[in-house]
Nucleic acid binder design. Structure first.
Lengths: 189, 189
DNA sequence: TGCAACTACCTAAAGGCTTTAGGCAAACCT
DNA sequence: AGGTTTGCCTAAAGCCTTTAGGTAGTTGCA
């Protein structure tokens, strides 16, 4: 018996890599056990069950993405911050499609409240501070930005933009530009 | 032996109902067989496999959604058409969450090309005609609208907006309004 | 109307994933 | 070194998928 050195953390990271390779919903306790050269049952000492494993991967991805976004936004404001923030999401999804899908897993309210998800919301609000919106417009705008970013990235990942000749990068820039203009137009003064 | 009268079509419709009740990714050949009081293997004479079943449900949902959207948009233009179109998506997702998820299933290119998905794109373009955009702006706008609608609906379904006091309906109206303004601002003349 | 052909549903079985229970041996602690 | 902890194991049950081959309703044609 060789003792590979499993821990919840190593399982989570390996699960994230596996997700990027085979897709988040093909991440299974069995596949992960195979990847470690270990019997399936062994993993159940480290994670509660399949759902638990997926949740851990989701939390990991949320954290990683929030870190990247924080880095990207640091020292920027207004339009520059918006672009950097938006690009972080899109780039992350292109680089780590499985992790990105994981980050979109439905978490139960308490888990979500304790997750890096709240940092995402905070960062979005921080960026919007540069646009001088009043409540409740700021909340509407938070929701709009989340919707566009998530929506675009998820449609692009699904191959929804591959049948036209128009470069997805151009559309992305056009959209982010448009949002910037929209938010400036909605400013309080 | 009683002969329930299974057909691919009945299975697809029942599958769509099942999806609304238990969620699209809990739709399984077994569950569907149970629902018809029939042995699992019997379904395999009517659908090729689990993937085939899900694809059929997806195509059905796309069709149903396209029909509703076409109805909603008929006789309207500009802002009115945009609102009606947007509301159709959101209402459909609220009324039929499982079917809505099904409609978002990744289809292989040929299947997608033969699906009602193309009607969705055509309708979006038709609505944008009211805003007088030039290419490639129109393509960018098609992608933006798709992103916002899909993104908002999917975040709302996931419960992403439930922790704030702000009414999701208000945010939705604000966003659609904003998009209308944005598109008018981008008009060619 | 009766029989042949078809077809709808069945039983059986194999393979995969999940999860729990209980066992052995490696690693740590004193 | 001895005892305890704990990491990985075997075994087994349950559910889902999918294929192969059988039986009995149903249909169509003479």
């Amino acid at each position: 018996m060789v003792r590979v050195g499993l821990t919840p953390d190593r399982l989570t990271r390996a699960g994230a890599e596996l997700a990027d390779e085979v897709g988040f919903d093909h991440v299974t306790v069995s596949a992960l056990a195979r990847r470690f050269g270990v019997k399936v049952a062994s993993l159940y000492s480290h994670v509660k069950n399949s759902q638990d494993l997926k949740t851990r991967i989701a939390l990991f991805a949320l954290e990683e993405l929030a870190d990247r976004a924080a880095d990207a936004v640091a020292g920027r404001a207004g339009r520059d911050a918006l672009i950097a923030f938006a690009d972080t999401y899109r780039d992350y999804a292109r680089e780590h499609p499985g992790r990105y899908d994981a980050a979109r897993l439905r978490l139960d309210p308490e888990t979500a409240a304790a997750s890096a998800g709240v940092r995402h919301a905070q960062m979005t609000r921080a960026i919007l501070r540069g646009y001088d919106l009043t409540e409740p417009d700021q909340t509407h705008a938070v929701r709009m930005l989340g919707s566009v970013f998530h929506g675009y990235v998820s449609l692009e990942m699904a191959g929804g933009f591959s049948h036209t000749a128009v470069d997805p990068q151009e559309s992305w820039s056009w959209i982010v530009d448009s949002l910037d203009a929209l938010l400036r137009a909605r400013a309080a003064h």
